[in-house]
């Protein structure tokens, strides 16, 4: 792990620039979200490829679908909360059902906008996207993961949703990491407990794994950045080994990573204990500083360690 922290959006924008450099016919569509997307370096180099539709999310997605039908690889970049809620029908019909070559980027997802409260939180984006056909769902966790995921997505033909974080985050993947669709990333191996996390909570899981090791607990930490398709085999293999699972997500417990893992446990008859950490279903997240929100819902390092100790005590 490298201490230096990177804004994942900067890695995203560099991927955009490199994609055009190598001949991809890219158009990035924003809805007044030029600062949200940190798109300036791209806009300076390829001003004609950036389209701003103003504060109009339905039009954002419809225009992107039209651009893709006209031959562009179209990317939308705006806050996840407005993308998935305001433009839901455009996402469903113009992108997913019509199977257009659009990449939907949900920026500042989860509770990145902590104190800005419920209107700005996106704790339902994964569950909403999972209900739609044809769409690949990805959630990078660090700058290396982000670059790899965008390099993949811009070459992939068809709808993709990418859940993005706003924090500056250290690197938890090796330089030789390669993203593979439908493949889980093992961040550390262990035999006592499996911790599975999505997006930036992979960092909390990673550090919890380190802390548990000091207590002689061998935690296996898996970053699930490919949500659909998901790596059922690797997930089941880990659970068969440890029989104890914690899932961690900055998302509602309805229809997120925890739900996916619970389905796998039941369908594969894995006989495991499961603790799902996230925002309880049927609730909006509390508002406030993000670290306080994470602590409240136990989706931080300490919460994961506590959950792990509980699981180890009861079995």
């Amino acid at each position: 792990m490298h201490e230096q922290k990177h804004d994942l959006r900067e890695a995203m924008v560099q991927s955009f620039i490199k994609a055009v450099d190598r001949g991809i016919n890219l158009a990035v569509v924003v809805s007044d979200s030029t600062s949200t997307s940190k798109i300036k370096p791209f806009a300076q180099k390829y001003p004609d490829r950036l389209i701003n539709v103003g504060i109009a999310e339905q039009n954002l997605v419809g225009v992107a679908a039209g651009l893709s039908l006209g031959g562009f690889v179209a990317v939308t970049a705006n806050a996840a909360c407005f993308l998935v809620a305001r433009a839901n029908e455009q996402v469903k019909n113009d992108v997913c059902y019509s199977n257009t070559n659009v990449k939907l980027i949900g920026l500042n997802a989860g509770v990145c906008y902590g104190p800005l409260a419920g209107t700005h939180h996106a704790i339902d984006d994964i569950s909403i996207m999972l209900g739609l056909g044809n769409i690949v769902i990805l959630a990078p966790s660090d700058a290396i993961d982000t670059a790899a995921i965008f390099d993949f997505a811009l070459e992939y033909e068809g709808p993709v949703y990418i859940r993005m974080d706003s924090d500056k985050l250290p690197v938890i993947h090796n330089e030789d990491y390669r993203f593979e669709l439908g493949r889980a990333n093992l961040l550390r191996t262990g035999t006592d407990i499996s911790i599975m996390a999505m997006g930036s909570t992979a960092h909390e899981a990673y550090f919890a794994g380190q802390e548990l090791e000091a207590d002689s607990v061998q935690a296996e930490v898996i970053n699930i950045s490919s949500i659909r398709p998901v790596d059922k085999e690797a997930i089941a293999e880990s659970i068969r080994k440890t029989r104890r699972v914690i899932t961690v997500e900055e998302h509602s417990l309805h229809g997120g990573l925890g739900s996916i893992i619970a389905e796998i446990i039941v369908e594969e008859n894995l006989q495991a204990q499961l603790i799902r950490l996230g925002i309880p279903q049927g609730q909006f997240s509390k508002a406030g500083p993000r670290d306080k929100i994470r602590a409240h819902y136990q989706i931080d390092k300490n919460g994961i360690v506590t959950a792990a100790q509980k699981l180890l005590q009861t079995s």
């Binding site: 039009n59 225009v63 893709s68 113009d94």
Partner: peptide
């Protein structure tokens, strides 16, 4: 909207 995107392309 999709027509706008196509015309823009």
């Amino acid at each position: 909207s999709v027509g706008v995107g196509l015309a823009l392309s």
